[in-house]
Nucleic acid binder design. Structure first.
Length: 857
DNA sequence: GTGTGTACTTAGTAAATAACTT
DNA sequence: AAGTTATTTACTAAGTACACAC
């Protein structure tokens, strides 16, 4: 049944609006319902049991006013808060009797001392009366017990709660136990296991043992850096020699002369103005062009430019602009492009190839490497995502004078376009970029890098996964550590541990601070009050916009202490807009992680959990003796688990609803057949009506009106078929000089179809269905079973498709899943690699091709 | 510590192609 | 052959992380 059930942690997002309601009663897929109760209140009630923090009303009184807006948040708060900062320590967790936590603003200086201190009920400073009562000696708490949660995986979580009481409160400081009992051989630099076997079945990159005759192959060998990796080389120096041809600038603007209208009249624009108007015109009827912010920003820049060019009449109002003529022009252009002749297309292709030849290649330490984005970004309207305040602003054309090139000293400096020069030429061998410039809208820096398949990128990619694999060996201790820290007296540590829990278990991003003029999105450390709600015993609802303004919405059962902590953090800030982790910053978090394991940062958890989950799922789902198709299905399902974990989404495609409807109709057609078969059975053996009443039950979701329509269509198709057959036959006869069939023959046949249609109608009415010749009850029953299978299969496919509609598998495949898991799997199960990796991916992951079939992440 | 800037990874979507229909 | 639809690649925005200046 619904997977949500066994999938505690990462319950899937509820598809709020998108739930395409397939009404099929029995088929609906319960995708998880939203449980959004009034969490806040809940908390309140439970307060009683819990610590008092509140009475420390005092604290709240402070001017916590922090910024209302997300942007600047922390600072203000911090400031005023400083004072009490220290005492967080004081605050303690409660434990059953409700202890008090409080944060007296008072003095206690060093937070450090707070250490276990808490117990002292005493009032601190201001008398917050907190009822510190009982102050149990804090420590020992139970909960850490379950620390080792398996993470993410469904099943596990469910039970995890009670678990063993291990008591291991281990403080985990850094080092954390080395429990690496793990299998992983070679934690180090991957090179270990490698060597030998190569994934087979890949035509193109197969370096066979035989001697390469083509020089390309030789070259490939030279490029096989992964074969002789040198452990600790200084990796701050990225190259010793770098030659390239610079960057490609988009062509000058060529005016098309199509005039937009202003106040209903065609208006003449200078080419520069026309260009910008065209940017908008081309986007008419897109979501962006409907976005008010986008329009405003566009218009501001556009009207200013128009004014500068003394456009008459002056363009003062967006609403008086009509870009339709331009829109239509571009539509026509598009059509034109589609209908280009072969030759035209061919020559276009050649041009592109020539460009790639010139700019798409560079020499790094003498080796030929591909350059990624060698084209300077063309001017246009900035397409900021979500509620980006600057979306729609004019992105100016980049001039060579803004572009700095990076290459080695001995490399010839590429010529700047005629009449231009470069901003600067540098020779920085600690950087991987070939060119850079500043973009005008957000003042951000843009770079030209090598392609994903290059050695530089490949090396760092491999390194990334090796770090994640090292985490695999440390994760147990790290988890134990943060579980214990959840109860630390220092607020800061507690927040840090709680954040680690979320990052680890929910694959949240770190959540750096953001500026005012960016979309308001958050990650773990920047979560705010309003993004989290709690529901009584231990359910947490997260709902916020993450990277790219993609909504993250999940409800999950969390550890008891995490629940308490969050309740506490939520209480501190006075109002919405405040940060949940008000004393935690990503830099501090990472600093701590670095101590736990060199190279560890917040994002590594995502990589680790993604790869680990994938391997785990793949191993569980792959049918060893299934067909390739079945194995691929398993692969994709494992991939999807990961995509869901990482919340990788995509827009639902335009035709999706229609496609679902089509499949639904297919299912209905199958049900229709079932219905007919059942009637046939009853016609053959009326007695069964009593004995097998189920034969009388109507098929779900199969209405008479639908069947009427279906039969009509069926007959129409039949007629078409008959006609076609007739025509074909005549064609044949003609060729063979035989006598053609007459029109009458066709008519007769069509009449037969009509007769059949009547029969169908009659059958439906009477319920009497004779069935095919030779039909027997047994045969019909067998067919019924087959139909059930097909229905089930189709329904599964539909569920699959529906779930996939908003889940993007690509991102995790490209960035999070260690490709060696895939290449090993392909070898082990004999699946051709190209079934799972496209050409570009095979190129990007060539370093991962040489693993043993039993390689483990 | 905070604040700012840089460099590089990760991300969804638009455009281009390939595969499949009609 | 043309029209769809599905898949792959190109594009560039939006993150993370860390260094450096104050």
């Amino acid at each position: 049944m619904s997977d949500s059930e066994d999938m505690p942690l990462a319950i899937r997002k509820k598809n709020a609006n998108n739930s395409s309601d397939h009404s099929d009663s029995d088929s609906d897929v319960p995708l998880g319902k939203r449980k959004r109760s009034a969490a806040r209140q809940v908390i309140k009630d439970d307060d009683e049991d819990d610590e008092s923090i509140q009475n420390s009303g005092s604290d709240s009184d402070k001017p916590l006013v922090k910024r209302t807006r997300p942007a600047v948040r922390r600072k203000t708060y911090q400031e005023d808060d400083d004072s009490d900062d220290d005492d967080d320590g004081d605050y303690n967790s409660n434990h059953k009797n409700g202890s008090a936590s409080k944060k007296s603003k008072d003095s206690n200086s060093s937070d450090s001392d707070v250490a276990l201190a808490k117990r002292k009920p005493t009032t601190n400073g201001n008398g917050d009366a907190k009822r510190t009562k009982s102050a149990p000696k804090y420590k020992e708490e139970s909960s850490d017990s379950d620390s080792e949660m398996p993470l993410a995986k469904k099943a596990s979580a469910k039970k995890e709660a009670p678990a063993k009481k291990a008591a291991a409160k281990v403080k985990v400081e850094s080092g954390s136990s080395k429990t690496s009992k793990s299998t992983s051989k070679s934690t180090s630099n991957g090179k270990t296991a490698t060597s030998k076997s190569r994934v087979k079945s890949e035509p193109e990159s197969d370096t066979k043992p035989k001697k390469p005759k083509k020089e390309e192959e030789e070259e490939e060998d030279l490029n096989a850096w992964w074969l002789n990796q040198n452990e600790n080389e200084d990796d701050s120096v990225k190259w010793t020699s770098l030659h390239h041809n610079g960057v490609f600038f988009p062509p000058e603007y060529i005016p098309h002369g199509v005039k937009m209208k202003y106040e209903g009249k065609a208006i003449t624009l200078a080419p520069e103005v026309e260009e910008v108007a065209s940017f908008f015109g081309a986007m008419l009827h897109t979501e962006h062009a409907e976005n008010p912010t986008f329009r405003e920003n566009f218009f501001k820049d556009f009207s200013k430019l128009a004014k500068r060019h003394k456009t008459v009449p002056e363009i003062k109002s967006f609403s008086k602009c009509d870009f339709t003529p331009m829109y239509e022009y571009f539509q026509a252009e598009r059509e034109m492009k589609k209908s280009m002749t072969k030759e035209q297309k061919q020559s276009l292709k050649e041009e592109k190839l020539a460009l790639e030849e010139q700019y798409g290649i560079c020499y790094l330490d003498g080796r030929k490497e591909k350059v990624g984005n060698f084209r300077i970004e063309p001017p246009g309207l900035f397409r900021g995502r979500g509620k980006h305040p600057k979306t729609g602003c004019l992105k100016l054309r980049v001039q060579p004078e803004q572009v700095t090139l990076n290459l080695s000293k001995d490399a010839p400096v590429p010529k700047a376009p005629a009449g231009h020069k470069w901003a600067k030429i540098v020779h920085d061998d600690t950087k991987t970029w070939l060119a850079t410039w500043k973009e005008n809208v957000n003042d951000s820096t843009k770079y030209v890098f090598l392609a994903a398949g290059s050695s530089l990128k490949g090396q760092s990619d491999m390194k990334k996964f090796e770090v994640a694999r090292r985490l695999k060996g440390e994760i147990e201790g790290i988890r134990r550590g943060y579980m214990a820290d959840l109860k630390d007296k220092k607020m800061f540590i507690r927040q840090r541990a709680t954040a680690m829990y979320l990052i680890d278990r929910l694959a949240l991003r770190a959540g750096n601070e953001k500026g005012e003029d960016e979309a308001d999105t958050v990650g773990c450390c920047s979560l705010r009050y309003e993004h989290v709600t709690l529901e009584k015993p231990d359910i947490m609802h997260l709902d916020f916009l993450g990277k790219d303004s993609i909504r993250f919405q999940k409800d999950m059962k969390v550890d008891e202490q995490v629940f308490k902590n969050i309740r506490l953090f939520k209480r501190e800030p006075a109002q919405e807009g405040d940060e949940l982790f008000d004393r935690l910053k990503t830099s501090e978090l990472n600093k701590h992680l670095q101590n736990l394991m060199p190279g560890l940062t917040a994002k590594v958890f995502r990589t680790y959990n993604a790869s680990f989950t994938f391997q785990d799922q793949l191993q569980k789902l792959t049918p060893a003796d299934g067909t390739v198709a079945e194995k691929l299905l398993a692969y994709n399902r494992a991939n999807r688990e990961v995509a869901i974990l990482c919340n990788h989404q995509r827009a639902v495609s335009k035709g999706h609803a229609g496609q679902m409807e089509k499949i639904q109709d297919k299912i209905r057609a199958l049900k229709y057949q079932k219905y007919k078969l059942k009637r046939t059975i009853l016609t053959l053996e009326p007695k069964l009506k009593k004995k097998r009443p189920e034969f009388l039950e109507p098929e779900s979701d199969l209405e008479d009106s639908w069947m009427d329509e279906y039969e009509v269509q069926l007959m129409a198709k039949e007629k078409e078929k008959v006609t076609l057959k007739w025509e074909k036959e005549n064609q044949r006869r003609k060729e063979n000089k035989e006598k053609p069939q007459t029109e009458k023959e066709l008519k007769d046949m069509l009449k037969e179809v009509d007769a059949r249609a009547k029969e169908l109608a009659k059958e439906r009415k009477s319920g009497n269905v004779p069935g095919a010749r030779g039909a027997t009850v047994e045969k019909c029953e067998a067919q019924l079973l087959k139909l059930d299978e097909r229905i089930a299969a189709t329904r599964t496919a539909m569920t699959d498709k529906d779930e996939n509609k908003q889940t993007a598998l690509g991102t995790s495949k490209i960035n999070y899943i260690d490709p060696r898991i895939s290449t090993a799997w392909c070898q082990k199960y004999d699946v051709p690699l190209e079934k799972i990796f496209t050409k570009i991916l095979r190129d990007k992951f060539k370093w991962a091709m040489t693993v043993d079939p039993d390689w483990e992440f």
